[in-house]
Design a protein around this nucleic acid. Structure first.
Lengths: 156, 156
DNA sequence: GTCCATGCAAATGATTTGCAGTATC
DNA sequence: GATACTGCAAATCATTTGCATGGAC
């Protein structure tokens, strides 16, 4: 996981921000669902389980804060909600997780990690002079569980 | 370009849809800016130049229609607007254009086409059994014109 | 005690929708 | 002439913001 409670406390203090129960709970809620891509509303519902008094606006404000601190990442699947997931940290280097396979049939979202992308980034940097610092890759299609041919079975 | 006026007329008729001045003008407006990624509001302003009576709602409805007909593609740069660009058609095969380099300094968006992605798709299909039909790839960084090191110069 | 953070309610802003009038076929 | 399309205004809905209260330090 990217940060534990103590690291988070320290990080907040360093920035002159206050450690509040709400902030701790929001981060914990997101950390508790490492494989999911939660909406603000979903995070709100999760936190409400242990702290029913929390307000939705606080969740939105906290999410924004966590994102600025690079503790969580935003993802947009164009379904009308911005989603969030834990930022992953491998060997001290922030490593983003923004590679998703999105099944057009069942809506399932599968995360993956790949090296070919680094190769592609290097090639682009070389060709265009563009200095790449982050990326977001989505592949749309049909997952194994849904099997079959998407095109033939499509009937909506 | 993906379609000319006549092809569009034919396509509409095939689907039992009516050919209206508004529809022709919206498609033309988007086609007239092949390198841009227009918002609904921008398309509205473009069409108003030659047809001031058009309503914004009509633009939204037409955009949705054109997207369903695969004449235009949606792109989301998470700036609060959904954007649209002409769908590209190479050698009769719909070829999507969803590869963008986004400069974090000047906001410039550069489109690119690459084959390494096909390789990556094949690899993913092989590994996960996921059947890929479309993708969307965004690289964030710093363009040549903005030069320099993004991290050092960031001060915001 | 100071000042930031919170909760509530109201505001915002892109997009959608209902409906009566209008244009296409 | 029937019916789909349009324009307008009102509705929607995720997210943001103002403000008075409450909590962290």
């Amino acid at each position: 996981m990217a940060v534990d409670r103590e690291q988070f406390r320290k990080l907040l203090k360093e920035k002159g921000l206050k450690v509040t129960r709400q902030r701790l709970l929001v981060l914990e809620a997101i950390a508790s669902r490492p494989e999911e891509h939660l909406t603000a509303e979903e995070i709100y519902e999760l936190v409400k389980l242990s702290y029913p008094e929390i307000g939705l606006a606080t969740v939105y404000r906290t999410i924004q804060l966590l994102n600025e601190l690079h503790l969580i990442d935003r993802i947009n699947f164009d379904d009308g909600f911005v989603r969030y997931e834990m930022g992953y940290d491998h060997g001290g280097r922030q490593q983003h997780h923004h590679h998703h396979l999105i099944c057009l049939k069942c809506g399932r979202v599968i995360s993956f990690q790949d090296d070919l992308l680094e190769e592609l980034e290097a090639k682009i940097a070389e060709t265009t002079g563009f200095r790449i610092v982050d990326h977001e890759v989505k592949f749309y299609g049909c997952c194994v569980e849904c099997g079959g041919d998407l095109l033939e079975e499509k009937r909506e």
